[in-house]
Nucleic acid binder design. Structure first.
Length: 578
DNA sequence: GCCGTTTTCGGCCCGACTGTTTTCAGTCG
């Protein structure tokens, strides 16, 4: 049986669901495929391993039929039903359904009646004015198709914006609105509030409708218009869509909960509620028994009516939070103030912009008790490598600064490169002089899955490597993670006592929330580090904490919530006596 | 296709918007 990644299995089920939908299957069957795909994509364990163990149906939404199809995929490399349907419906047809306004039903009509099987064929049919005469279409629909094609909608999905840029824009808008109406309730909603890796647009809820008219006048807004008495829509100069919604204070909780989502969370929440005779919407909670619709000023009231504990926004992805909220077993999530130290930061010795002292003072100002100076190592390129002699000098400088600067403990460390053979790029005798070593991959990203896994697992077996930095190398919306068996790496870390980093750089957030949750479940030590290259970037620790919260982590799951002495005492170095 | 304070069949979240429609289907979030 092959060892497909969860994401690959999920993609296959999503595709099959789309094909079934084109084929006219009942919508609930289609949804079953997409739900199962999401469950698999979010699973903190290897689904291929579950298949080998014969326990696939323990996953919610996976029954006998889907389990059999997943077995086919793993054993034969394909799902026969998908292969058959692909022969009937060309891939170009699926591309057409990605166009705004064109779903499976209308795409199917274009295919059946005009033979349209690709974006190019669609353009030709629209140019020839063949579409307007079709049932369900018209001249307007035909024009909309041409507009969507011209916008390139069929080739690429609309780009998502990485959280820090989106959050910056959102916070500027909220601050500007607060200046106009200081008494109003103004809250971010949507995926920005859930602290997702990236977001598509900005949702903001206010309890004062006069603010709807103010949106267009804000400095950061390029254009805006009032869509209704309770909504305004605008666009920032950077091209992000902003949806501003106004509601009376007594329904503020209903709307905020609705717009915060996620869609999967809300759908599952409403399905649960229906079973107890309640119907949730953005307007209130309708009780079948009494016919009364309850309005909720706060989100906590919405969840309480549904019989649930309050669910923090970061957990609202339908990854088990509803069940935990019903059972009273939601974790007490880690907070930024729980972090006691930061074990990954750079200075001007390599590619950072601050001195040791500047970084130390900035970390102290943030309330941290310790900071590891971990500049790049001997083989780092770009002319900012640190030779062995320079590192010896750097160790002295860190110790000297540590003695001089009060209120923070400075640790002499390094971010060493993991060479393709899995070894670090300093001699062991030099590594032994350091307080802290974090090891990362910065070269040879293109190794095969097995070689890369072997390379990284080998690094974890090195007695002087304390932790693995940004373990997958991904850059959100820019670079895919390298091929790696994360289950194997997590197991190797747990076995050797090597810690895994959640890198807080908002472009990385690596480990991601799925892997971080899996690592915690496997008993691996987890760090939330800034990887700061400047004093300002130390503030980025909140992104790593948000990833940790989305991974369900508590303070006890994250090693650098401990004082340095306690962390050092339980490190693998201390345990092995090196 | 899944699932069970409606248990092995009959349901399956809610509402807005759009365009093509005389009451609604399709799409979207």
């Amino acid at each position: 049986m092959s060892d497909l990644a969860n994401a690959a299995i999920a993609d296959a089920l999503d595709e099959l669901g789309d094909l079934y939908e084109l084929d006219g299957a009942v919508i609930h069957r289609v949804l079953a495929y997409h739900k199962a795909a999401k469950t698999i994509r979010d699973a903190p364990v290897s689904v291929a391993a579950l298949a080998r163990a014969g326990t696939l149906t323990t996953l919610p939404g996976i029954g006998a039929t889907l389990a059999a199809k997943i077995h086919d995929l793993l054993e034969r490399g394909e799902i026969p039903a998908a292969t058959k349907l692909r022969e009937r419906y060309p891939t170009g047809l699926l591309a057409i359904t990605a166009l705004p306004g064109l779903g499976p039903k209308r795409a199917r009509r274009l295919f059946d009646e005009l033979g349209v099987d690709s974006p190019a064929a669609l353009r030709a049919a629209a140019d020839a004015q063949q579409i307007r005469s079709l049932k369900g279409f018209g001249a307007k629909g035909e024009a909309a198709i041409l507009v969507a094609l011209a916008a390139g909608g069929a080739e690429r999905p609309r780009r998502r914006v990485v959280l820090d840029r989106a959050l910056g824009a959102a916070e500027r808008i909220v601050a500007a609105l607060r200046e106009i109406e200081p008494q109003a309730q103004i809250e971010l909603a949507g995926s920005v509030r859930r602290r997702a890796d990236s977001v598509k647009d900005l949702d903001i809820v206010v309890d004062n409708a006069t603010l709807l008219d103010a949106l267009g006048g804000l400095e950061s807004i390029e254009t805006a218009s009032k869509a209704s008495a309770s909504a305004a829509r605008g666009r920032t100069h950077t091209g992000m869509t902003v949806e501003l919604r106004a509601v009376t204070p007594d329904q503020f909780g209903n709307l905020l909960q609705h717009l915060t989502g996620s869609n999967a969370h809300n759908a599952a929440l409403r399905e649960r509620a229906v079973r107890t005779g309640l119907h949730l919407s953005e307007y209130g909670v309708l009780d079948d028994a009494t016919g009364v619709t309850h309005h909720c000023a706060s989100e906590a009231e919405v969840y309480a009516l549904a019989g649930l504990a309050y669910i923090p926004a970061e957990l609202r992805e339908n990854r088990g939070e509803l069940e935990a909220a019903a059972a009273g077993t939601l974790p007490k999530l880690i907070e930024l103030s729980d972090l006691r130290g930061d074990l990954h930061a750079h200075t001007t010795a390599s590619d950072g912009h601050g001195s040791i002292e500047e970084m130390a003072l900035a970390a102290r100002a943030q309330g941290l008790d310790y900071l590891a100076i971990t500049d790049h190592s001997a083989t780092h390129g770009f002319g900012d490598d640190v030779s062995p002699d320079q590192l010896r000098r750097q160790i002295e400088l860190v110790h000297e600064a540590d003695a001089r600067i009060g209120g923070i403990r400075l640790l002499a460390g390094s971010e060493v490169n993991i060479l393709p053979d899995g070894s670090p790029d300093y001699e062991d005798s030099l590594l032994a002089e350091l307080d802290w070593v974090i090891a990362s991959v910065h070269t040879s990203f293109g190794l095969g899955r097995e070689e890369m896994t072997e390379r990284m697992c080998r690094a974890t077996s090195h007695p002087l490597i304390d932790a693995i930095g940004h373990p997958t190398g991904r850059l959100i919306e820019r670079r895919l993670p390298y091929e790696l068996d994360m289950d194997a790496l997590i197991a190797a870390c747990a076995a050797t006592g090597t810690m895994l980093e959640i890198n807080s750089n908002p472009d990385r957030r690596d480990l991601n929330e799925i892997h971080a949750r899996a690592a915690a479940a496997a008993g691996a030590g987890i760090l939330v580090n800034s990887d700061a290259h400047s004093t300002e970037r130390l503030l980025g620790l909140r992104y790593g904490v948000w990833t940790a919260r989305r991974a369900w982590l508590t303070a006890a799951d994250v090693a650098n919530t401990l004082p340095w002495t306690a962390l050092a005492a339980q490190s693998k170095r201390a345990r092995s006596g090196t």
